[in-house]
Design a protein around this nucleic acid. Sequence first.
RNA 1: CGGGGCGUAGCGCAGUUUGGUAGCGCGCACGGUUCGGGACCGUGAGGUCGGAGGUUCAAAUCCUCUCGCCCCGACCA
Length: 570
Amino acid sequence: MKFSQLFIPTLRETPAEAEAVSHILMLRAGYVRQLAAGLYIYLPLAWRVMKRINAILKEEMDAIGAQEISMPGLHPAEIWEKTGRWTEIGDEMFRLKDRGGRDMCLGMTHEEIITWLASTEIRSYRDLPQMWYQIQTKFRDEARPKSGILRTREFIMKDSYSFDRDEKGLEESYQKHAEAYLRIFQRCGLAFYQVESDPGMMGGATAHEFMAPSPAGEDTIVICDKCGYAANVELALSIPPSQKDAGARRAVPLQEGQLEDISTPDKRTVAEVSAFLEADPSCFIKSLLLIGADGPFLALVRGDQELHEKKLQRIVGSFRPAQKDEIKDILGVEAGFIGPHNNKLKKIADISLKEGTYISGANREGFHTKGIKPGTHFDAEWHDVHVARGGDGCSRCGAVLREENVIEIGNIFKLGTKYSQPLRAVYLDENGVEKTIIMGSYGIGPARIAAAAVEQNNDKDGIIWPLGIAPFDVEIVVLAGDDKELAETAGRIYRGLQDEHFEVLMDDRNERPGVKFKDADLLGVPCQIIIGKKALKEGLVEFKIRKTKQTERIAPSDVVARVKQLYGKA
RNA sequence: CGGGGCGUAGCGCAGUUUGGUAGCGCGCACGGUUCGGGACCGUGAGGUCGGAGGUUCAAAUCCUCUCGCCCCGACCA
């Protein structure tokens, strides 16, 4: 296509509202424009990228036997009421009424709808398994849309759903998706990890996320380079480094094995007491009084660790922090001075506390206690309830974990019967017995793939698209648009590339060379064919790789072969 | 929802403290000269200063309310 006939509104300056690299570059290079918070218009270039990503998605989904369908974006409330999510989900759901006053919503996802479909159509074990997918718009009234295309209120998603007779079937569908996802992200040229994730509100037992490392990412994962363990910090296990020596002796009382109260007036937080006593935070026990379904209990983590509420919730069910007066009523002291010893409350302690001697609140106003030995001075249920961090040990092999910020680009969930049961998606098995369909749900955000690709592949001059998803394969830069000879050479190369099914952008604009070079680098098409008078005098054109800026002078007749070589089609 | 920042020409910004009727750079249009890394000269178009109300002889500027956008946090099928 001719640049002069395409709408590519590049910007010389960075719009003030953009912060993330991908957001800045996609605005500057004329890919997207913002309509409102979290709502973006995809201009021709961005839409071409999206189409390419979607084509890869379709190929790989079709390859595992999934069938493309299309479901409405507007849903009746009734179905969402049946699964309970109409009330479970709060402001994040866009809700509206139709003219008849019926409650409706804009679909945030399609488990309900597809399960309804399955419930009405699937009768027999002979109908299973099935895998259905769509590439469709989702609506979520995000509390805080951000980072351009990364977190929006309306976005396209590839979502697929598997329907199986049993767990074994689900496992197969799940693995097929995992493998397809690996191929998809590879073809899109992304660096990514597959990590264990929290099933969250989706329900079900197993879930994985596909994560593209980027500073713009909103999620954090820990990775073990030795054994391959990788998990979202929402559930990652780890072994915190052992108690630090710095000031550790201060945790030891004058008489070994005894407890010793020390005056710590007005020192309440770990940071304050740690500074006051000159002992490392890892020498303290942080005691948090929480109220669970069975009454109050103490959660204990080491002073240098953070309590992971979701992990704790999985162990004890839902809980809430105790209020100030509740703490006084139960322990007789204010929050800054509570400790695990000398009380009979149930205790859940983090595994990092198993060894060592500690200081904690004395359960006495203005005092802390030294010499507390877990197991000796208090008993507890031991669990991993701290937040895993880089530098911790791997819970599987002990090697040091690494931490990285990542963009979630895809996820896969084993749903089980979470949706099929309330919506009565059932079938009759070989023995005529009614069984509930076992489901899985699998999502990919194409816009996030695009954004992650830009985040991972750019330099000071602009975007550097991975080969598989660039808006064009080749950009021909014709340095003097009005020169006949240049135009003819460009035309020949253009047709030659098209004959080999390459997507070619030809910058035929009547612009100065500098402008064309700058725009070409900004747009990020993987390779450029530069046609200028100088080289052409010698019968040559230039072949430039966007990523390395390496330039080769080659004969016009060799261009097609050189491009084919770059794209591995030689 | 809590905290912070910002709304002035298409984009980036100045002007707001101390009220006097809006300016700079880029971009855009036209003419000319240029033409291998965002050219130069000249001419010109373009703004109810986010909106509403108020104070005042006079409001971009002061006051009240309101809307929008961005960032941090909470939240996040």
